[in-house]
């Protein structure tokens, strides 16, 4: 019973704003033991090398930009990245938290669900509504699974989104910037929807995970 009470009290403090998140900057001034400070260590460990490899695979090896095959490669690699790199750089209070398998699975499902609002957002950003809906959903899958480590940490850190927002933002900015090549009259295959935006999202994620701890 007491356990139940405790949980519900945790639930009450759920917040999506930045206010409650303690980062390295205000670490010393204010120490709250109920809400231990969370931050990402500034190491090269967070550099997502697998995204380099995936981009190389997508552009040079895969058969005419096989976006589906890329997704199959992305999901396991992102999980590995989370377990061995990203989670190991994330500090809660003064310790590293062990990876929680149920949470890994829950956040996988959540990421999958997240693709639906993401598809809506991509359409709001100008993707065709009726034509190429599958391609748009595929793109949103890519973008969401790129954000997967951050999604896991959002769950892990009691929904304190503030610290993790920058990772989402970097992916969005990367995807948004890459749109610029679509109207060019070069008539290349890679200008077709959604290839440039997939690449842009990957680049955004690459930059985001590499320097996310430094901003």
């Amino acid at each position: 019973m007491s356990l139940k009470n405790k949980r519900s009290s945790v639930k009450k403090s759920v917040s999506f704003s930045d206010d409650n998140t303690l980062t390295r900057n205000n670490l010393k001034k204010h120490v709250d033991h109920d809400n231990p400070p969370v931050y990402v260590r500034r190491t090269t460990l967070t550099v997502p090398w697998h995204i380099f490899a995936l981009l190389y695979y997508y552009i040079y090896i895969s058969n005419s930009y096989d976006t589906v095959a890329l997704l199959y490669l992305l999901i396991p690699l992102q999980i590995t990245y989370l377990v061995f790199q990203f989670n190991k750089s994330t500090v809660y209070g003064k310790k590293l938290l062990k990876i929680k398998l149920p949470l890994v699975l829950i956040s996988l499902c959540a990421t999958l669900l997240l693709t639906i609002p993401t598809t809506v957002i991509i359409i709001l950003f100008g993707a065709p509504l009726i034509e190429k809906l599958f391609e748009t959903w595929l793109l949103s899958l890519h973008l969401c699974f790129l954000a997967y480590p951050a999604v896991y940490q959002v769950f892990n850190g009691d929904f304190k989104v503030g610290l993790w927002k920058r990772y989402f933002v970097m992916i969005v900015v990367g995807a948004w910037t890459s749109c610029i090549v679509i109207p060019l009259d070069w008539d290349r295959y890679w200008q077709t929807w959604p290839i440039p935006v997939v690449v842009g999202g990957y680049l955004g994620a690459l930059v985001g995970y590499s320097i996310g701890a430094f901003i």
């Binding site: 950003f125 948004w176 749109c179 679509i182 109207p183 060019l184 070069w186």
Partner: peptide, 17 residues
């Protein structure tokens, strides 16, 4: 860029978003 002149609406859309 001749394509951006022809497709100028794309730039404006991009800027608006």
């Amino acid at each position: 860029s001749s394509s951006f002149v022809e497709e100028e609406h794309q730039i404006w859309w991009w800027v608006i978003t």
